[in-house]
Amino acid sequence: MSTKTKSKTAHNRIVYTIIYIILIFCAVLCVFPFFWMITTSFKSTAEAYSFPPTILPKRWLFSNFVNGLQAADFGRFTVNTVLLVIVNTVATVLSSAFVAYGFAKFPAKGSKFWYTCLMATMMLPGQVTLIPQYLLYYKFHMVDTYWPLIIPSILGGGAYNIFLYRQFFLSLPKELSEAAMIDGANSFQTFTHVMLPSVKPVSMCVGVMSLVWNWNDFYNPLIYINTTSKFTVSIGLQFLNSSMGTTKIGQMMAVALIMTIPVMVIFFICQKYFVEGIKMSGIKG
């Protein structure tokens, strides 16, 4: 008995060593470009491309941060972006779960058809629908407001998120909702009290993805917002990207770095909710 457990722990140790080696290897690959971004943000343009590459800057140029942040009104842009991101993230999580619940749990006439439509919306390249869509928003008097950036989040939160939630709702055991129904809960109560808590890890996924996506989204604000004071941070970053070939790489990395850090911190903090979500999820034992 004791030898068996011994060999088992030895075996475990080997397994875990292998796991950690793989993880560390992948982690280095993941972190490296980020690390490079940090060091480049302190380098002069010439040093950023010097060969052989310097690991750490020879001369630490803090001016990249100062000059980079002067390229646009980043204070104002940050406020705009934070507000937009919060609204969009909350709206996306709630509305996509809501719609997905309908798709997953209520077999109705036409549900297959609508589901196919849902999937199809992801497949048409956005570039050709851009102009007709813009025309509609213009007719609704929504150009140069945040509405075109928020409406997709409120109304379904995007096919991707609906699809994701639907997959998870489908994989939830049937007993879960049935038990709630027997208790006399209506479908909406089942949704809020049984379904949403059971897919908490998914909600975290969707929330974080929507946060990151909205934070980095450059395309939609650029197309729909005309007034400079309503711009977002990602547009500001583009003011450092010269199309004439003289991009100041150090400044660009400095601003990109500042843009990344808040998202990173939020993501890291969210970890504990992931864990909590998992603890709460599903039926235990």
Binding site: V31, A256, F267, Q271
Partner: peptide
């Protein structure tokens, strides 16, 4: 676990024009 997850998620957060240039 939280640290690992953040590390593996990092590229997704940073993948913009800046990193493409890198």
């Amino acid at each position: 676990l939280g640290l690992w997850r953040t590390i593996f998620y990092l590229p997704y957060i940073t993948s913009g024009v800046a990193v493409t240039i890198l």
